[in-house]
Simulated assay, not measured.
Amino acid sequence: MAAYSMVSVPKQGNNPGVPEGKKNVVIIFDFDQVKTYTRDEKSVTVSAFELNTGVTPIGLFVDEGTIDAGDEVEGDAYARAFIHHVNADHPGTGVAVAEFKANNVNANLGVIIMPCDPSATTAKIYGTPCAPLKMQAANEQDTNEAHKNHFELKTEQRTYPVGIMAKTLIPATDNNEINAYLGLPVPSGV
């Protein structure tokens, strides 16, 4: 990798800290099914991303107001790096979400979160091939107050910061309605 040269980071507009809306469907995939994943020389931009032949990610409907995603620095001196996390609530307690939990509780997951702004050209990708997200919590609430599942995904190893990728690199999910909603190509035969 080429060495990073420091450059200025000026103010990004008048309101750079205003929260950015997010789509209420997150894309989830298994890092064990990733064929290609590369970052550029500055370690942030994902420059290539491809799943194995015949593999598609899934879309998980979430309450967009509950999405809490990011990275944190941790570690001792000269060993610091980033831990990623994605937390969100899925409204509902049906069979499909229970099957997702049961079959992915120990999987090596990655999550792509897309901004709500239709003019945005990038999305954020959480987890890396060597530091995938793991389910830390998948708690169902089935009470007179709510029917939902709360998910907490977190990397267990330190890695690069959260990745930024072009929307054109995001593969279509297994659901055409979700693909259309997210602005992804709608493949034939899905």
Rank of each mutant, 00 (worst) to 15 (best):
A3M: 13
S5T: 14
M6F: 15
V7A: 09
S8W: 13
P10L: 04
K11A: 05
G13C: 11
N14Q: 10
P16D: 01
K22W: 11
K23M: 11
K23C: 11
K23W: 14
K23E: 08
I27G: 07
F29S: 07
F29A: 11
D32I: 07
Q33A: 15
Q33N: 12
Q33F: 14
V34H: 02
K35S: 00
K35I: 00
R39E: 01
D40P: 07
V44T: 10
T45H: 04
V46C: 13
E50H: 01
E50L: 06
G54C: 06
P57H: 04
P57I: 08
P57M: 14
F61I: 13
I67C: 04
A69F: 11
G70W: 07
E74N: 14
E74S: 04
A77H: 10
Y78G: 07
A79H: 05
F82V: 09
F82W: 13
F82G: 09
I83V: 05
N87C: 14
T93K: 08
G94E: 13
V95L: 15
A96L: 05
A96K: 02
A96W: 11
E99A: 08
F100G: 03
A102E: 06
N106C: 10
G110Q: 05
I113G: 13
I113R: 04
M114E: 02
C116W: 14
D117H: 09
P118D: 15
P118Q: 04
P118H: 07
P118V: 08
T121W: 05
A123Q: 08
K124G: 06
G127A: 03
G127M: 04
P129F: 15
C130F: 14
P132D: 07
P132G: 10
L133I: 10
Q136I: 09
A137S: 06
A137V: 12
N139A: 10
E140Y: 00
E140G: 05
D142E: 01
A146W: 08
A146I: 09
A146T: 01
H147N: 00
H150K: 13
L153V: 03
Q157H: 15
R158F: 10
T159S: 11
Y160A: 14
V162G: 00
G163T: 03
I164T: 13
I164Q: 11
M165Q: 08
A166G: 04
T168I: 01
A172P: 11
N175Q: 02
N175Y: 10
N175R: 14
N176W: 03
N179I: 07
L182S: 02
L182D: 02
G183P: 02
P185G: 15
V186H: 01
S188E: 03
